[in-house]
Design a protein around this nucleic acid. Sequence first.
DNA 1: CTTCTCACG
DNA 2: ACGTACGTGAGAAGT
Length: 615
Amino acid sequence: MLTYRHTIAGDLVTVHVPQDRDDLDLFAAWLTEADRRGPIALDTETTGLDIYSPGYRLRLVQFGDADTAWVIPWEWGGMFAEAVRAALRRIRRLLIHNAMFDWLVLDRHARVPLEWLAPRTTDTKILAALIDPRQPQEGGIGTGLKPLSAYWVDRLAPDTQAGLTAVFRSLGLTKETGWAGIPLTEPTYLLYAGLDVILTARIEPIERRELSRLGVRRELSDYEHELARICAVMQRRGIVLDVEHTRRLDDALAAEAEEFAAEAARYGVDNVNSTAQVADALAGMGESLTETTASGAVKVDKAVLLGMADMSLQWEPLGVRTPNPLATAVLRAKRASKWRTTYASTFLDTVDAAGRIHPMINTLQARTGRMSITRPALQTLPSSDQMIRRCLLADEDEVMISADFAAVEMRVLAALADVKRMQEAILGGRDLHDFTAAMVFGPNFTKAQRKLAKGIGFGKVYGGGADTIQRQTGAPMAEVREALAAYDRVYPEIKRASARWQREARATGMVHLSATGRRLPLDRDRTYAVTNYACQSTARDVLGQAMINMDEAGLTEYLRLPIHDEVLASVPADRAEEIAREIERCMRFPLYGVPIDAEAEIGGRSWGSLYGADY
DNA sequence: CTTCTCACG
DNA sequence: ACGTACGTGAGAAGT
């Protein structure tokens, strides 16, 4: 047995690393006792984050309580792997920090289904997000193991990730190669692997106490654990990549980027991504660049360049000036290279051997509780064009379904702020922006007036003022001000609710309590954001509830992605109608009497088919 | 590491 | 007193 000791919060703790059969027997004996006493913390060490890439390895599996950790070298296989599997079968309650990752690792590489682990798991990262969802940069504690340990357990708890980077270097390894290359006998690696579970075991009871002190309901935590399981199943399933199409697209975008970069070079710009170079060259051609960025640099963004290229924000020709050929070349070169590197190439880099992409779904990423998707960021694929979404396919003999909520944040606002006339419009089945335009401008409102009414609706949800609404809608300032005043007369409850929420937050530690009991910390100098936080967060929980409804209806196997107010699903072509109706049923329910509505659209094989021409 | 830019809801 | 657009992820350049 290898044994290491360390001091955590003044206590001497022990990390054991079994080396033979006798050691494993001691582990089994410890486990029996510890499992009787309380939950067991679990963690894994692997070769990286790309669980589905070829050559990926599970290296260590750690178990522990507040004082003792057992680090099992899974990679040695045989009786070591069997000891891990036996432990995972019998442990009654598991504590995992960021459980989705370890569930998926064990599911894929230890053949322990996540369906076994999930019902027994408490995720200390989820509990942390329910206490304070902010990242450290935002003034919060943060939800990583390191900041939580430092805050709740021991200010001097080692930063095990950063500490290992130093060890990697001393062994001639890098941050990238270290996790795969470090020997399973390296003492710091083994000690830190053990400390992570000891810290997790120590954090959980403190978090429970804190959640209880703050009055956070148990149901909210249970709901988040359910959502994590559902999203883990989505991540495990992954999405089919049209590899051939993506390769061709990748090549075509590379050629396009090269062609337009060469064009830009003719005007003296040898790097289209250098804003300084582009600005200088444009100024040399007689263009006047007046806008500046926050830090005072000349602004040369897409909007500025499109103006010079005589194109609208939708890239349509305007015919109001002679297009500047450099502006056009820079726009096209930058778009082609961004779409290639951010999307097409990343798809090819992350696809598994079976041709599927497994994006990481972070179920509680944003401070409002919104989810995010990374590696690749499938929530942010271009929607103006089907080019990129065309790369992603429904399964064989299946079609894509995209089910969207109808104006969900406005409906949530109507419900939360009890906006009477808005509720009447929704209950009457009216188009909200039509209704608002009629109320503000009269029944014969113009198209531009409807656009302004819609802009003001967004402005209200985001907390924007006349200036921003003017910028976004392009309407004359006087008209914007007048319409804003009329809007407040039609829906007086919005202003009142916002003022009330801000007042309550100031009185209770700058935290807004959402409809689901979520704690939403406000920034002292932008308390107006509370309206947005309340709407965005509740809309997120509406999506979460819909996903749980879908899970209960047996639809999880079809789900592919959550996209804020939309779910993407892949369903058997011959059952598409039936499943689409079922998805809609799961997404439709009342929120404080206000109906939340959704519509499912059936596409073809590719996601792109839902955006424009079918394939 | 910060800034700028750009993709989404 | 007044007014404030919200939330993300990612790549590239420049310090």
